[in-house]
Simulated assay, not measured.
Amino acid sequence: MEKSKVYFTDLRTKPGLNLLDKLERLVKKTGIENIDFKNKFVAIKIHFGEPGNLAYIRPNYAAKIVQVIKDLGGIPFLTDSNTLYTGRRSNAIDHLTAAFENGFNPLTVGCNIIIADGLKGTEYRDIEVNGKHCKTAKIGSAIADADIIISMNHFKGHEMTGFGGALKNLGMGSGSRGGKLEMHSASQPRIKAKNCKSCTQCVKSCSQEAISLDENKIASIDYSKCIGCGQCVAVCQFNAAQVIWNESADTANEKIAEYAYAVIKNKENFHINFIINVSPDCDCFNSNDLPIVPDIGIAASFDPIALDKASVDLVNKAPIINGSILSDKHYHEGTDKFNHVHSNTNWETGLKHGEELGFGTLDYELVRL
């Protein structure tokens, strides 16, 4: 497979060229105008952010992409699927309210917002992938029924996959609640007893009531109830709840790649990573920590795997922000920043599996604008 081109623009501006102008120039230079949008439904897959978290992509960027698509004759809508865990986005009504609260509404972005898997997360299409783990993928109906897929991805750390970018947003983000359960179920966490401080944050955050304190006031997981969503790993401030990085966790990353493949299979697709506010954890939580590196820029490609690989390389070449979690964890120059933040993860697994599935390559050429 030939190298994929990943186009990149930094965040420097000047009079007459603001960041929205630079975004439009970036996507057009990458080739978005080569897609036939005329009278086609265009799903713009985005994460609306959990209220309280301020690291998500600004609605202004979404509005610019919406306008570009409209100008090309497309019928765009912003979309995401409901979450598996408890929170403000686990059903369509609360999800829409959260999106509006964070600035995503028809007035601000110029198009409608559709929660892809319906009111309770049960509306999906089975898309055949015949993958290593999944024969079919349960993709939210609105995304599955769209003619064209555009992903707008906040590139940041992630407690289960190391980082979240195009593959994570496409795969996990487009799966119905049942699909998310299928992807998460291979990566049940563990409790490292000596680190547990009996704070009960994991108990309070568990949507399945699978965690309780034992007779020694140590968190304990009932694996007959655990769905492997990783919520306890994210909220634990003492590294007591940990992902078990073994064959089953590799499987979770590979399943995400198979779901991402299902989303874009036989469809025109285009992807944008915003390497801005690179927080250490997912935007699914109602707070965001200090970014681990300074803002870097925006990258775009027709290849989501090359895009993610280029983005992680840019982050690893960037200086750390003093006072961030990397300082707390005594980061050493030259090591992978995401694996350092989440030491039990390995982001390469998913990208390599995606390459094996044939919908992208790790080999890329970075074109700086």
Rank of each mutant, 00 (worst) to 15 (best):
V6H: 00
T9H: 07
T13G: 03
N18H: 09
R25P: 04
V27T: 05
I35E: 01
K45N: 02
I46F: 04
G49R: 02
E50S: 04
P51Y: 00
A55P: 01
Y56P: 00
I65S: 00
I69V: 12
G74D: 01
T79G: 00
R88E: 11
I93V: 13
D94P: 01
L96F: 03
L107M: 13
L107H: 09
I113N: 01
D117H: 08
L119E: 05
K120D: 12
T122N: 11
D126F: 09
K132W: 04
C134S: 13
G140F: 06
G140Y: 01
A146M: 01
N153M: 04
F155V: 03
K156H: 03
G157M: 04
E159C: 06
G162L: 03
N169R: 02
S176C: 10
R177F: 05
G179Q: 05
G179H: 07
S185C: 12
Q188L: 15
R190C: 14
K194Q: 15
C196R: 07
C199H: 11
C202D: 12
K204G: 12
C206A: 11
E215I: 14
E215T: 13
I218V: 15
S220N: 14
K225A: 08
C229N: 09
C232P: 08
C232V: 07
A234C: 14
Q237R: 15
N239K: 15
D250I: 11
E254D: 10
I256N: 03
E258K: 03
Y259A: 07
A260W: 02
I264M: 06
N269F: 05
F270R: 02
F270Q: 00
F274A: 03
N277G: 13
D281M: 12
D289Q: 14
P291T: 13
I296A: 06
G297S: 10
G297C: 07
D308V: 07
S311G: 06
N316H: 04
K317D: 12
K317Q: 15
G323H: 09
K329F: 05
D336C: 09
N346A: 11
T349F: 13
K352T: 03
H353R: 07
E355A: 09
F359D: 01
L362Q: 08
D363N: 14
